[in-house]
Design a protein around this nucleic acid. Sequence first.
DNA 1: AATGAGTGTTGCAGTATATGCAACAGATTG
DNA 2: CAATCTGTTGCATATACTGCAACACTCATT
Lengths: 248, 248
Amino acid sequence: MSQTVDRALSILPLLAEGPANLEQVATRLGVHKSTALRLLRTLHEHGMVYRQQDQRYRLGARLFALAQEAVENLDVREIAHPHLVGLNEKCGHTVHLAVYEENEVLYIDKVESRYPVRMYSRIGKPVAITVAAVAKLLLADLPEPERRTVVERLDYPLYTSRSTSGPAAFLTELATVREQGWASDLGGHEESINCIGAPIRGADGRVIAACSVSAPNVVVTSEELLTLLPLVRHTADAISREYSGKHH
Amino acid sequence: MSQTVDRALSILPLLAEGPANLEQVATRLGVHKSTALRLLRTLHEHGMVYRQQDQRYRLGARLFALAQEAVENLDVREIAHPHLVGLNEKCGHTVHLAVYEENEVLYIDKVESRYPVRMYSRIGKPVAITVAAVAKLLLADLPEPERRTVVERLDYPLYTSRSTSGPAAFLTELATVREQGWASDLGGHEESINCIGAPIRGADGRVIAACSVSAPNVVVTSEELLTLLPLVRHTADAISREYSGKHH
DNA sequence: AATGAGTGTTGCAGTATATGCAACAGATTG
DNA sequence: CAATCTGTTGCATATACTGCAACACTCATT
């Protein structure tokens, strides 16, 4: 592993917390000012950091552009999008598409609810991995040894009284999800928000993504939301079929 | 400038074009396989790249997360958001917020149109800098020497027959915009989409951001859109006031 | 105006560190 | 079972990164 690159990349999350000047960056990296300066210059030339008027550094524009292109290159996303829009048109609620990657589950697409009360989330944002329906679907399909290590390494924040309590509970929940082929999150993240999801599979049957429908209690009860399950699964299956077709 | 970091960062835009394997990366970088491998490993440890099942590398999740945090740390955005929502509630059209940074203008916030016909754009995406109303507003306020160099270095794609034709035309347009304190784009990017915008100023009067309202012809004519101008300017001024207030 | 503190920048010498090589491993193909 | 292709590892070399110290610049303070 390259020390120089390692140091340079460590600057980015540091700046994500907020703007910082040269000295702050140097101390937090544990290197000499001049070293930090040269790293920042290189990052700057690549547009990864930006220097504002007060000389402090911030994360730069290229970062957005890259994240942008990255998300647009995901072909599941491209195939899934029209289906998600269709799902939203039928039920009116917020629709999400998510993938698993390196111990994180993140939203890669979203269609906004047509109801006035909406849920906060944003493309690119990691989801609450221990409670979200999409996270359960994606983790449930990991090969056994990996699933166990991931699950044990997670934190289990108690967002609400119905949040997953710990590794053991999560593993049984994942088993259920794998069994039944769909997942739900009934108030585990936000007390008043329920969510149901279904897996999208590649040609080999592995789960490559998951989609879900979320709605607050004030709009539909969890029972009513569950009646949408066939629709959600149907959508996920349609995406799976199209994805598998185009990939062979 | 650091060679190693430079090479490592050059990998990212390369991967943005699509997944690539080790050898492809090595050749395009002009380095030995083993060198490329070590760079990729470092990028991988930081979550900037991801290795998919077929061993090829793609851009990684951390990139999204970083871009995410970066956008959320922009305090103009935070202050502006409720105003933008209010503007959207009053007119129903797509509302954008944009900033200038290092030869690019990018959207940092967006409120979707409430009409079924929507315009394509996404937060983080660089705008069509030679035609967009927000771009005109931001460039118009650059100090004279910089404005000239930027304008002359740009490409002028002819999206439509009404696109800005070249540096000279753009400079006069910018002068007008500076003079009148607002900007429009009438079918310069997409034949059927019009757009009007107004500047958001910091305490010192410099333009720090710009907001705009966009709507397709089929929803409102350009004349009708222009009647919204006072509303847009009013919103921008309100944001300016609040921003200046909170910064002293 | 002058002093001083604080921060960013540059040239340089030494050596840590990245590099390319070549040999190896593993997978896929004929 | 060779042959080919791609990724991985250990190692010797010297390149390129580092820290230092001196310098430049801005901004307060007297």
